[in-house]
Write a protein that binds this DNA or RNA. Structure first.
Lengths: 340, 340
DNA sequence: CCGCGGGAGGAAAACGCTTGACCCCCTCGC
DNA sequence: GCGAGGGGGTCAAGCGTTTTCCTCCCGCGG
């Protein structure tokens, strides 16, 4: 074990200066003479000095951590959240912070934990993801005066008194539809509609809007909306049902990559080639898009940008709540374009 | 925003006692008289007092956080890791700690970040998961005197000079094979063999051992080992290949739930019923085991216990490294037992 | 030659908490 | 009645930083 000591005082001694000079070297290098600075740096190097983050945080009365309310694993099952978590941690580090996890059992213990952390000066605030249409956690945090930023809007979102950020879900689905129309499709289905969260509602809206924009009959579009869960088996079944219908679609827009993978499975089982016979798109651009020989076209959320914004919102805590809506992009693969 | 103040001094004032009495009430309640204790508690409640965790941590020279090296999201794609992360965070909280995330780009920046955190007194040590057979990260951490516990052994593991914990992978696969043999199967295949990590090697060993134990011909067993990646498409293909072979198996043991799901898809595509015609088992007991109407029998790791052990190892830092091997359990579903 | 300005570094306080030593006073026993 | 003992509480000394003055010294201009 190394000697986990070496305080500023040690460095100061070694460099033959005072403690505050060392502090200055670290925090306002321009104020200290070149030569001294060099001496101090040398001493720091020799002693393998590390600034004591705890002491600094205490002195500055500024927490160095940002809290993240970890979604229950069974509530998600979406690899996209792994990507987001990773990006969130990265964004924190870029802002000279660290991400602290906090789990949620029931609301009350979650709130206690949040209060301990926030009022205990341990975290600057929280990021909350997987928000529902009406999310108790957000209301409670707000009520208790604990700052946070939400990943995703709530139902009554546009005047919710807190900041949030998310990918533009409606736009994302629109982009998928646009892409398909551009490739000549007119019979486009939407799989995975549900109202679990406002974001999901937005995806359905994006589908309807795009259909309308392209002059696809609303009644036909409506008939091709499949409501279901977002798992593989549901995708398999939904695609089968669509193909068996009177007017089978030539393209299937899925609300999630799992559903798209399920659709691809169904196609292949029937000897159809995804992208040639029937086009399929997914959402979130997860590893699932690589399905054997076929690549699934998918909407990619700007998760790094979303994460960076959430961190900024927690760190800066703007006076008036901000809403950030970031445009996604479309990754085209062979499931819509055999040439890709 | 609440007045995020209320220090011990404030509480002391309000309760008409000294600061240290307040401290005592918090840390050694038994040493202070009932009446005073009550007074102080009242004051704390009225002022919504929270112990300043940063100051406490500084004073005690004991970090309140545990670091976790977040695996790159594309390197995993396994929902089990979500469960583990959740359990790890929970275990930390149970130990009055919090989990701090740290991402890894290249080895050098990871190490710098770890040093900053550890020597900066911010974390007590690290938990590292997804360890490879020869893992640079572990070697480097060890070399730099940074304490950690690994989730998973390395190749030369049994005398590695650090603590680790993991689920008994060999035992897990054995249990699956035992279960199948018990149900009358003799032609058992193993899908997903690879040597990416020692844990994976162990799973294969578990298969071979169990086959040998039950008197299944080693040559036949070997012939039924399919080496492949752990994604859905690979599972689909592997099962197809096995079924098309000269001596098709009656049961397929998969190294991962994704593979098992793929196998189930293949079976269904051929009109076979999983659990009746051909049995299938997975590993990790992820949400994927619920595949439409069929439930996939799967080996469940004792992730909560593993997490708790890792936290303990980081917190206590035993003199001599400990190795903890925890037995998994088998969740039986319809893919091996139609009655389940 | 003297005074002033400014650049460079230092002294000390404060951040909020813990803890071992110490002190006071009440009670009990002789 | 007085000393010992002990329960209940306080003192003071930090933990390692940062930051606000302050001092010191050097050089320059008058």
């Amino acid at each position: 074990m190394g000697e986990r000591k070496a305080s500023m005082a040690d460095v100061a001694d070694r460099a033959g200066v005072s403690v505050m000079t060392v502090s200055n070297v670290i925090n306002r290098p321009e104020v200290v003479a070149e030569a001294t600075r060099e001496k101090v740096h040398a001493a720091m190097r020799e002693l393998r000095y590390r600034n004591n983050l705890v002491a600094r945080s205490l002195r500055l009365a500024r927490p160095r951590q940002i809290g993240y309310v970890l979604p229950a694993p069974d509530a998600v099952g979406n690899p996209y959240m792994d990507v987001f978590l990773h990006d969130l941690a990265t964004a924190c580090q870029a802002a000279d912070r660290n991400l602290t996890l906090i789990t949620q059992q029931d609301l009350e213990t979650l709130m206690t934990a949040c209060e301990d952390l926030y009022f205990g000066q341990s975290v600057a605030g929280f990021v909350v993801s997987n928000v529902g249409s009406e999310d108790d956690r957000l209301l409670e945090l707000h009520r208790r005066g604990i700052p946070f930023a939400a990943y995703g809007r709530t139902g009554a979102a546009f005047d919710a008194p807190w900041s949030w950020a998310e990918g533009d879900a409606a736009l994302g689905v629109s982009m998928a539809v646009d892409h398909l129309v551009e490739r000549g499709h007119r019979e486009i289905a939407f799989v995975g509609a549900n109202r679990a969260s406002e974001t999901m509602v937005q995806r359905e809206i994006g589908y309807r809007d795009a259909c309308a924009r392209h002059g696809l009959a609303a009644s036909a579009a409506d008939a091709r909306i499949v409501h279901c869960r977002s798992d593989l088996a549901a995708g398999v079944r939904a695609a089968a049902a669509l193909l068996d219908a009177d007017a089978p679609p030539t393209a299937i827009v899925c609300k999630a990559d799992t559903l798209a993978a399920g659709a691809v499975i169904t196609l292949q089982a029937r000897g159809l080639v995804p992208g040639r016979d029937v086009a399929v798109t997914g959402y979130d651009d997860t590893p699932l898009t690589e399905f054997g020989t076929v690549g699934i076209t998918s909407v990619r959320q700007a998760s790094a940008a979303i994460a960076a914004n959430l961190v900024r919102l927690v760190v800066d805590q703007p006076e008036t709540p901000e809403r950030v809506l970031l445009p996604p992009s479309l990754t085209v693969r062979s499931s819509t374009d055999p040439a890709a």
